[in-house]
C-alpha cells in the first residue's frame, strides 16, 4: 500500500494536470473573490455571514477542483490505458484504489488550504480597501481554513470513488461540475422546505458547512464533518467494489 501510495503521488507530480488544476483554481478564486469583494454593494457585505460567504468562495472552488483531481486520477488512467500496467504491477486492485484515495485526499487538502488562504487574504484586503469593517475573528478564519482543507480532502476522495464507478472521463467530470455548480444550488435554493430537509445534507452543502458558512441554513461544522466523511467513505468503498469486481478492457 505504501509503494502504491508513493507511485500515485508520482503519477500526480509527473504530468501537468495537477499543476494546471491548481493554477486554474487559484485564478478563479482570485476572480470570484475580487468580483464579490469589490462588486457587491457595501450594505450587502457588512454582516459576518455575508463576509464569510465571500471568503468561502475559496472553499467552494477548492472542493470542485479537488473532486476533479480525484476523479482524474482514475479516469485518466483508463483513458490513456495506463490502468493496464498499473494493475499488472499491482494486481491487488483494492490497494490501488486506496492509494488513489489517500494521495488525492492529501493533494486535495493542499488545494483546500491554498484556495481558502488566498480567498481569506484577498477578500479581507478588499473589504479593508473599501472601508468596510471586518466582522470576522480569528476563530472564523481558523474554521474557514481548517474546514475548507478538510472539505477539499474529503471531496477528492469522493472524486476518486465517482471516477472508479463511472470510469469514462467526460461523463465523470461533467457529472461533478453539474452536481456542484447546479444541483446543489437548487437544493439550498428558495424552494420551500428543500434546503432544510434535503439540501443541507447534500455533500456540497456539507463542505460549505465545514468551513462555517451560512450557519442559518447549513449544519454546524461538528455535524457536517462526520456526515461528509461518511459520503467520502461510501464513495471510496463503492469505487473499491466497482474496481475489484469489473474486468479491465
Amino acid at each position: 500500500m505504501k509503494a502504491q501510495f508513493r507511485a500515485e503521488l508520482l503519477k500526480q507530480r509527473s504530468t501537468r494536470t495537477g499543476l494546471g488544476l491548481f493554477a486554474g483554481m487559484l485564478g478563479l478564486v482570485l476572480l470570484v473573490v475580487l468580483l464579490h469583494g469589490f462588486g457587491l454593494a457595501a450594505e450587502g457585505l457588512e454582516g459576518s455571514s455575508d463576509q464569510l460567504m465571500v471568503l468561502g468562495r475559496g472553499e467552494f472552488l477548492a472542493v470542485l477542483f479537488a473532486a476533479l483531481l480525484g476523479a482524474l486520477s482514475v479516469t485518466n488512467e483508463i483513458r490513456h490505458g495506463t490502468i493496464r500496467p498499473t494493475f499488472l504491477v499491482s494486481p491487488w486492485r483494492g490497494r490501488v484504489v486506496a492509494a488513489k484515495v489517500w494521495a488525492s485526499a492529501l493533494i486535495g487538502a493542499g488545494f483546500g488550504l491554498a484556495a481558502c488562504a488566498l480567498a481569506a487574504g484577498v477578500g479581507t484586503a478588499a473589504l479593508r480597501l473599501r472601508g468596510i469593517d471586518v466582522e470576522l475573528d480569528g476563530g472564523d478564519y481558523a474554521l474557514l481554513l481548517a474546514g475548507g482543507t478538510a472539505a477539499a480532502a474529503l471531496w477528492a476522495a469522493i472524486g476518486v470513488g465517482l471516477g472508479a464507478i463511472v470510469r469514462d472521463q467526460v461523463p465523470t467530470l461533467i457529472g461533478i461540475c453539474a452536481w456542484l455548480l447546479f444541483v446543489e444550488g437548487l437544493l439550498v435554493g428558495d424552494v420551500a422546505g428543500v434546503a432544510e430537509n434535503v439540501g443541507r445534507f447534500a455533500p456540497g452543502a456539507l463542505g460549505q458547512a465545514l468551513s462555517g458558512q451560512d450557519p442559518d441554513t447549513l449544519l454546524a461544522p461538528a455535524l457536517g464533518a462526520p456526515l461528509l466523511a461518511l459520503y467520502a467513505t461510501a464513495a471510496a468503498a463503492a469505487g473499491w467494489i466497482a474496481t475489484t469486481r469489473r474486468g479491465v478492457a
Binding site: A7, L10, K11
Partner: peptide, 22 residues
C-alpha cells in the same frame, strides 16, 4: 497495448512510477 502511456509524462517517469509501485 503499444500505447499505454500518459502522453504528457516522460518515459523515465513512466518507468519510475512502475518501479515505485513494484
Amino acid at each position: 497495448e503499444s500505447n499505454d502511456f500518459h502522453p504528457g509524462r516522460s518515459g523515465r517517469d513512466h518507468l519510475r512510477i512502475l518501479a515505485l509501485a513494484a
